[in-house]
Amino acid sequence: MALRESGWPSLRSRRIAETQRTRLVRETSPEVEGAVPRRESFSLPSADGSFRFAAVIAFTVRSGEAEPDDPAVLDLARTGIARRAEAVSTRFRLTEENRVKGELTTALWSWEALAGCSVRGRCVSIDTDVELVEQIAEFEKWERRRSVLAWQARQRKEQEERMRSLVVDPIGATARWFLDNQDKPRDVVAVAGEFQKLRSLLLPEEQADSPGALVDDLLDNLSEEAHRDHLIRTLRKWFTHFGRDDLGARLPGSGG
């Protein structure tokens, strides 16, 4: 009795495993239920534009009530396989051919019900132009280098902009220095003075034009004599009214 009880789970497990194997064979065997095995080549698009993968895909067709070799059924099966395969292949570049094979089998392994048949498959092989793949790999390497150089250029430009903002803003520059050197409060005044000197040296203050210079510039730009005489009389009148004899003395004919 003890032997029976100890052997029963093992026997039961073997029967369950055998049942599962039988079901798997029935589902995958092309000789069962009208399933027809096929193996064909497909040209699959890649993520590299016009460059394509050459794939050999084995697939099995269940034709249902139709004849297994019915051309319409086979066309449906090929179309279904190609559609699922292209959805996978377009995600990868030619340099990733090793991944594509496994991804294709994963996508094609389950049965897909089509009009009048069901189909599933697996990728047998993926082939690419070796020379072309090498060229693409070199191009990808060049793209990575270019991206790094572009990033470095952006970093440099951002650093230059930050430095420029510090040069034209002595207060901000001093605050930033003090933030990093809070243990040196006695040096703040000297540092602020240096930043102020730097700003004055690199970005001197723009001097506004003096009133006398504006008057001279205004008269020099008038070429017509009538307009010039009228402007001189008008300016002399207003300069006298506001007590700006110094400006009136700059006018022609003032006897100064």
Rank of each mutant, 00 (worst) to 15 (best):
S125D: 14
E96R: 13
E103C: 05
S125R: 03
G102T: 10
S118M: 08
T105R: 08
L114I: 00
C117Q: 03
L104H: 04
E112D: 09
E103G: 07
L114F: 00
L94K: 07
S110G: 07
L108H: 04
S118A: 11
R122Y: 10
S125M: 06
L108I: 07
C123M: 10
S110R: 15
A113F: 04
L94T: 12
K101T: 06
S110F: 02
T128M: 00
V119P: 00
K101V: 04
R120C: 08
G102V: 13
R122W: 08
R99S: 13
L104S: 08
S125W: 03
T105N: 06
T95C: 12
V124C: 00
L114M: 11
V124K: 08
A113H: 13
G121R: 06
V119Q: 03
T128G: 10
A115V: 09
R122G: 03
E97Q: 11
L94M: 12
R93L: 09
A113W: 08
V119R: 00
N98F: 10
A107Q: 10
T95Y: 04
C123G: 04
W109M: 15
T95I: 13
E97S: 15
I126Y: 02
E103R: 15
K101M: 05
E97K: 14
C123H: 01
S110N: 14
V124Q: 11
D127N: 12
T105G: 09
E96F: 03
A113C: 07
W111R: 12
W111F: 04
G121H: 00
E97R: 15
R99W: 11
R99C: 03
N98K: 10
V119C: 07
T95G: 06
